[in-house]
Amino acid sequence: MNANWPLWEIFIRSKSGLNHKHVGSLHASDAEMAIENARDVYCRRNEGVSIWVVESKNITASDPDDSDPFFEPAKDKVYRHPTFYDLPDEVKHM
């Protein structure tokens, strides 16, 4: 039975104003069941206010073999981070 059900990636928004975050994956026969399963599997302890589900096959991921050309060049360019400014205490989440 399980083998026939496609896999879905589950994204939960923990409270209004925040982004949906990937929390895991589960099996379901369609999107509606995926939402209900996600509600039962990932939101039992008051974790969320909104659920997105995406069938895993619809996600295109970057190739781990490409990670050097993809990500390495960013590492030594500290000037791309705003680390040279003095931030006032009032500015949060930087």
Binding site: M1, D40, V41
Partner: peptide, 11 residues
């Protein structure tokens, strides 16, 4: 029958 429904029923 599957983990997801096991949890659903016990919920």
């Amino acid at each position: 029958p599957v983990l997801e429904q096991d949890i659903a029923l016990t919920n």
